[in-house]
């Protein structure tokens, strides 16, 4: 029984990371109606920034760690905004296929730049969590798990407050509801979209630090798999819905952890994607998604 609980907690911790990544997908999808394939690779770049700061520059103690974390998040934020400005903004009115292909191109570009700079050998990421964790009975909870869950909960509360109670947050809701009407009401649509990319990418930066601290192998392909799974989580929770992304992420993390433990470790990815296909068959709008009627 105690092993079940430890798998469950691992799952929740992994799921919180998925939820943070899924928030980026879902917010961008809600506002720009595009699937940002490069989101997963922003995570990978964030990981490399922190790795460089900690291991190469030696910012490994006290204030240095915070500096590294800050640089990682800021780097992801700037990268996200830059990608949006260069690659996605010119395609605002293009067919979705063109935007998708561009996003794949960006994702591929980031991967290959990382491959050329850092090489294909995985790097050993040293955890930035300075906290040892504790045990409840026989269940051991690591510091990374505690920090991951705590940080995710804080961010989710903060984000919910921001979206529902600040002017910029409400502008985001308005743009996702109806871009044209929002513009008529005086909302600066371009700035709102940039803000969404900035927030989503900063969350990806946080997720990258948590992910690499828990699973310390960093390679140019680190971001791809969690990115796809987080997208699955976003669809599961209902794409476009912020609480949906959080719930979907946690459920998906638990499913993955439990299937790894009790079914097969090789097939856990296949099971997660199987869940995606079942969700699309049964309830394509996801758990929290709304069905939108199409206007002609």
């Amino acid at each position: 029984m105690s092993s079940f609980f430890s798998y469950l907690i691992t799952g929740i911790s992994l799921g919180s990371i998925y939820a943070l990544i899924a928030l980026g997908y879902t917010m961008v999808y809600g506002i720009a109606k595009m699937l940002n394939f490069a989101h997963g690779d922003v995570i990978m770049i964030g990981g490399y920034i922190v790795f460089t700061a900690v291991s190469t520059l030696g910012w490994s103690s006290g204030l240095g760690i915070f500096g590294a974390i800050f640089c990682g998040i800021l780097g992801c934020l700037l990268l996200g905004v830059l990608v949006e400005k260069v690659a996605y903004k010119p395609l605002r009115n293009a067919p979705s296929l063109a935007v998708l292909i561009t996003a794949i191109g960006v994702s591929y570009l980031l991967q290959n730049i990382a491959l050329l700079i850092f090489g294909s050998n995985p790097k050993n990421f040293s955890s930035v969590v300075m906290f040892d964790g504790f045990s409840i009975g026989k269940v051991r909870i690591s510091g990374e798990t505690v920090v991951t869950i705590a940080v995710s909960v804080l961010i989710m509360i903060g984000l919910t407050l921001f979206v529902n109670h600040t002017k910029s947050g409400m502008a985001m809701l308005a743009v996702s509801e109806d871009k044209g009407a929002a513009q008529l009401m005086g909302v600066n649509v371009n700035r709102t979209i940039s803000l969404t990319f900035a927030i989503g990418s900063a969350l990806a930066g946080v997720a990258s630090i948590l992910l690499c601290s828990t699973y310390p192998l960093l390679s140019p392909y680190t971001g791809a798999m969690p990115g796809i799974k987080a997208f699955t989580a976003a669809v599961f929770g209902g794409i476009g819905s912020i609480p949906g992304a959080m719930i979907g992420g946690v459920i998906l993390g638990v499913i993955e952890s439990l299937s790894k433990a009790y079914i097969s470790s090789q097939f856990s990815d296949a099971i997660v994607f199987g869940v995606l296909i079942i969700v699309l068959l049964v309830k394509p709008t996801g758990i929290m998604g709304k069905k939108l009627n199409e206007k002609v």
């Binding site: 292909i101 561009t102 191109g105 570009l109």
Partner: peptide
Amino acid sequence: AIVLIVMM
């Protein structure tokens, strides 16, 4: 990757 982006 650059070809994809530039073409689009």
